[in-house]
């Protein structure tokens, strides 16, 4: 699961030598909170996440490229009683449950930026592609997992604040949504993933 990010990181580093002025990249810390039914599985805002955007300038105001990200949520629930049914047997399991979801974002997307290259530049963006949800439910020493790829979209708004000639502070808020795919480890009719993220990092390039 970490392979796509590793490839992206290596690609970025190995190609940086041939980058010219029409490219820029953002690396940012991502704080994300689940929404919708996804929140019933992990109900916490996670500070464990990061993202990487690699963008090519299509014009002075429009960029397009890759939107990559990783977020993880993990929450502990004590004293949970969960019903189960296996063939002709029914019952319940009581104990401490640890719910964890790892999610990778692998999308293509673009930004529309207002203002000039030396200004504080508000922008809005839209990305589409894949988002993964790797759910894990641990009870005692037993671990159940379910991993799915979702088609996803991620609209965003943000602000680029110039810091020096080639770098900017990159602040953004993004809503990520993964359409139904596969089955969930928790009791929902459709396995979707949705979360808000607040991202803060740096943009290098011009």
């Amino acid at each position: 699961m970490k392979k796509p990010l590793l490839i992206a990181a290596m690609l970025m580093l190995t190609t940086s030598g041939v980058w010219s002025q029409q490219y820029f990249g953002s690396v940012y810390w991502s704080v994300a909170t689940p929404t919708g039914q996804f929140r019933s599985f992990v109900n916490e805002t996670s500070v464990a996440g990061f993202g990487l955007d690699v963008q090519w300038w299509a014009s002075d105001h429009v960029s397009a490229g890759l939107v990559l990200g990783y977020n993880v949520w993990s929450d502990v629930y004590r004293g949970v009683t969960q019903q189960y049914k296996i063939n002709d047997l029914q019952g319940a399991v009581n104990g401490t449950q640890v719910h964890t979801v790892n999610s990778f974002t692998l999308m293509a997307g673009g930004r529309y930026l207002f203002g000039g290259s030396r200004d504080v530049r508000p922008f809005f963006g839209l990305a589409a592609g894949a988002v993964t949800s790797a759910q894990a439910l641990e009870v005692s020493l037993v671990r159940f997992t379910e991993t799915n790829w979702h088609l996803g979209v991620a609209p965003s708004v943000g602000l680029l604040i110039p810091m020096s000639f080639n770098s900017m502070l990159d602040l953004s808020a993004r809503f990520s949504y993964g359409f139904p795919s596969g089955q969930a480890l928790y009791n929902v009719s459709q396995n979707t993933i949705s979360f808000w993220s607040i991202n803060a990092g740096f943009t290098f390039g011009n």
Binding site: E44, V47, V76, L89, N94, T96, V98
Partner: peptide, 20 residues
């Protein structure tokens, strides 16, 4: 920042019941 929950020994105890 990866969350660790500081689980105690008791957190690994489970009560499982089943019936027909």
């Amino acid at each position: 920042c990866y969350p660790t929950h500081g689980l105690a020994v008791e957190d690994f105890d489970t009560v499982v019941t089943g019936y027909v």
